[in-house]
């Protein structure tokens, strides 16, 4: 079933921003083909991970510009679609979770209302059915007292709970592809694992595709099947997650070596020779 039509097919994706000295490309000809699998995109900040995620959803804000030879989701070329059709697709079939939950949730609407809106935008259901789905979804993200939490406002919940609510909002329309951009960077280590386990479980259960974007090599290795390493707008290496430790590219090797280990014995950590990469 995975060998047939890919869920997402991207060829020669480019994102650029104008500068006084001409346009600067921040994603430089990226190719990507994704089935119902879990793909991790890793790289240092500024390497173009978020711009790649946003471009897939055609969410590059002006004055940024994106082009691609092909940007197909489930066999449909997205670049030809009207903005309206795109809006229908976002949420309903492709969802994106951003880094900071407090920023993405509307502060003046109750949590239950926002989750219900996310569902109603894509499905025609009775009030009663909407309510039932909202409660079911809050339970699925392990919120113990869903009726009560549905009445609360975003500022009344902790960061970890806020991020679980975001996940509920993104998954309630039952999308086929979830793009999670640093979904746990704002959370504590102890809560990070819970949130990622939850995403993982829901993705597997529903047979969705997942693109997990992160700067954390250990984290993508743990939660993905395949890993793409980005540097300066380009993919420098793609490998199976279980083979990350055997990565060949010197940039990937450099990143891996720089991570302190729990059983650390090195006196000095190896650092990247930045001159070799032309960046800072």
């Amino acid at each position: 079933m995975t060998a047939t039509k890919p869920l997402l097919d991207v060829e020669n994706l480019r994102v650029s921003f104008p500068t006084p000295t001409g346009p600067v490309e921040v994603v430089k000809g990226l190719n990507l083909s994704l089935g119902r699998e879990r793909l991790g995109i890793v790289g240092e900040s500024g390497s173009g991970k978020s711009m790649t995620g946003r471009a897939i959803l055609r969410l590059i804000r002006k004055p940024g510009k994106m082009t691609a030879d092909r940007l197909a989701f489930d066999g449909v070329e997205l670049q030809g679609l009207s903005e309206r059709k795109m809006r229908d697709l976002r949420g309903a079939r492709i969802s994106m979770i951003m880094q900071d939950p407090k920023f993405s949730l509307n502060p003046v609407m109750t949590i239950g209302y926002q989750i219900a809106e996310a569902l109603k935008a894509h499905e025609n259901l009775s009030r009663r059915d909407v309510q039932a789905r909202v409660i079911e979804m809050l339970q699925a993200v392990r919120i113990n007292d869903p009726e009560q939490v549905a009445q609360m406002y975003p500022h009344q919940v902790s960061g970890g709970m806020g991020q679980r609510i975001m996940i509920a909002m993104m998954l309630i329309p039952r999308p086929d592809l979830l793009i999670a951009d640093e979904p746990t960077s704002a959370l504590d280590v102890s809560v990070q694992g819970q949130v990622l386990d939850l995403i993982d479980e829901l993705v597997r259960e529903k047979g969705m595709g997942l693109i997990l974007i992160s700067h954390d090599l250990n984290l993508v290795a743990r939660y993905c099947d395949r890993i793409m390493v980005m540097h300066a707008g380009q993919v420098v290496e793609t490998c199976a997650a279980k083979d990350l430790h055997k990565a060949q590219h010197p940039y990937t090797r450099g990143l891996l070596a720089a991570v302190p280990q729990m059983k650390e014995t090195r006196e000095v950590l190896p650092v990247l020779d930045r001159s070799q990469w032309g960046g800072t």
Binding site: E44, S45, H215, D216, L217, G254, L255, A258, V259, P260, E267, V268, L269, P270, V271, L272
Partner: peptide
């Protein structure tokens, strides 16, 4: 900081 920059700063502090 990114891991590679973190490594530079940790080495520096040490």
């Amino acid at each position: 900081l990114d891991v590679s920059v973190q490594a530079e700063i940790l080495n520096l502090l040490k």
